[in-house]
Simulated scan of single mutants.
Amino acid sequence: MKRVNAVAACLVMLAPALQAQNASRDSSTWSRVSVSVRYGVFTPSGNSEAYSLIDRALYSGAATLNPRIAGADVAVRLTPRWSARLGIESGERTMESVSRVSPATTTSPVAQQTALQLTSVQSLGVEWRAARWARAQGAGADRARLILGAGVGTARYRFQQWGTFVDAERLVAYRDDFYSTGRGLFEYVSAGVDVPVTRWVALQGTVRQQFGAAPMSDDYATFDRLDLGGTNVSVGVRFSPAELLGRR
């Protein structure tokens, strides 16, 4: 609840920013828009029953179940330091594993696969340019900018395990395919660095910490909620369409 209140307070700060933008008449709405594309990796926190089961039953555990994420963002500058941000992303990761328990009839490894897909992930938040480092004598573009952010989002997931498994009580091997799908809400905070290359493009690196969970279903309906929290580390490119097209 404290995290939700903190994010809500940050979003409330948009109200004065929206009023302040009316005072800025030196640029059009189009020139305040920037677009980012990024690629990274999401490492789940793993604080749920499904992850604990993987750690207990399979080698090498859930540590490698970290989806590769591709995403895009649109940011609208509200004031010189505040922006509203809308993001979309998706990704997946399939890991191969081996049962820690061997069936009574053989000592051969019993292999299976686990997949985590994050699809239809949307987020809405604010960005604050906390600091900037200008070039010598302030000429030209900034050398770098520190960007802090916060917001909320929604994510749809698919969690699936298939292959051969071992009944730990009877030590019998069997084949099966288990899955669960669901959607949940999350909150996030982020920190990133933009490094301008030209007037219209900048390289960026971002670390985002998110918190949330989604209900499990189907074969995992008796499990607790699937943890959607974790750390998202990405690199990408931010560009200004107005600058690129020569508009002012």
Results as ranks from 00 to 15, higher is better:
residue 126 V to G: 12
residue 115 A to P: 06
residue 148 L to H: 06
residue 132 R to F: 12
residue 111 A to I: 08
residue 157 Y to E: 05
residue 136 A to T: 13
residue 149 G to A: 01
residue 114 T to V: 03
residue 157 Y to A: 01
residue 112 Q to S: 15
residue 137 Q to Y: 01
residue 112 Q to C: 13
residue 120 S to P: 07
residue 150 A to E: 05
residue 127 E to V: 00
residue 138 G to Q: 11
residue 155 A to F: 04
residue 159 F to H: 06
residue 139 A to H: 13
residue 156 R to D: 09
residue 150 A to T: 02
residue 155 A to Y: 10
residue 154 T to G: 09
residue 131 A to T: 00
residue 143 R to E: 14
residue 128 W to R: 00
residue 150 A to I: 00
residue 140 G to P: 10
residue 134 A to V: 00
residue 110 V to A: 08
residue 132 R to P: 13
residue 128 W to Y: 13
residue 122 Q to K: 12
residue 143 R to W: 15
residue 142 D to L: 07
residue 127 E to C: 07
residue 158 R to P: 14
residue 113 Q to D: 12
residue 144 A to H: 05
residue 139 A to F: 07
residue 130 A to Y: 08
residue 125 G to D: 06
residue 120 S to A: 00
residue 134 A to L: 07
residue 143 R to M: 13
residue 117 Q to T: 09
residue 140 G to S: 14
residue 132 R to S: 15
residue 160 Q to F: 02
residue 117 Q to E: 14
residue 142 D to T: 05
residue 147 I to V: 08
residue 118 L to H: 08
residue 110 V to C: 07
residue 124 L to P: 12
residue 136 A to K: 06
residue 128 W to I: 03
residue 130 A to G: 07
residue 154 T to H: 08
residue 136 A to L: 10
residue 157 Y to L: 02
residue 150 A to H: 00
residue 121 V to R: 05
residue 118 L to C: 07
residue 142 D to M: 08
residue 110 V to N: 14
residue 124 L to D: 11
residue 154 T to E: 15
residue 145 R to L: 04
residue 136 A to F: 10
residue 137 Q to L: 04
residue 121 V to D: 11
residue 115 A to V: 05
residue 143 R to C: 11
residue 152 V to W: 04
residue 144 A to T: 07
residue 111 A to H: 10
residue 148 L to C: 02
residue 141 A to I: 09
residue 129 R to H: 02
residue 141 A to Y: 08
residue 128 W to F: 07
residue 127 E to R: 03
residue 129 R to L: 03
residue 132 R to Q: 15
residue 133 W to R: 01
residue 146 L to D: 04
residue 150 A to C: 06
residue 145 R to A: 04
residue 124 L to W: 13
residue 124 L to G: 15
residue 122 Q to T: 15
residue 125 G to F: 01
residue 128 W to N: 02
residue 132 R to G: 15
residue 129 R to M: 02
residue 135 R to S: 13
residue 113 Q to R: 11
residue 150 A to N: 02
residue 148 L to N: 05
residue 119 T to E: 14
residue 150 A to S: 03
residue 134 A to P: 12
residue 134 A to C: 09
residue 141 A to P: 12
residue 122 Q to L: 14
residue 133 W to K: 04
residue 138 G to R: 09
residue 138 G to I: 08
residue 152 V to S: 05
residue 122 Q to N: 14
residue 138 G to P: 10
residue 146 L to T: 00
residue 112 Q to E: 15
residue 155 A to P: 11
residue 125 G to V: 00
residue 148 L to K: 00
residue 160 Q to R: 05
residue 116 L to C: 03
residue 122 Q to H: 13
residue 144 A to F: 06
residue 124 L to T: 13
residue 140 G to N: 14
residue 110 V to S: 10
residue 111 A to C: 09
residue 125 G to I: 02
residue 154 T to W: 10
residue 134 A to W: 06
residue 136 A to G: 11
residue 153 G to R: 11
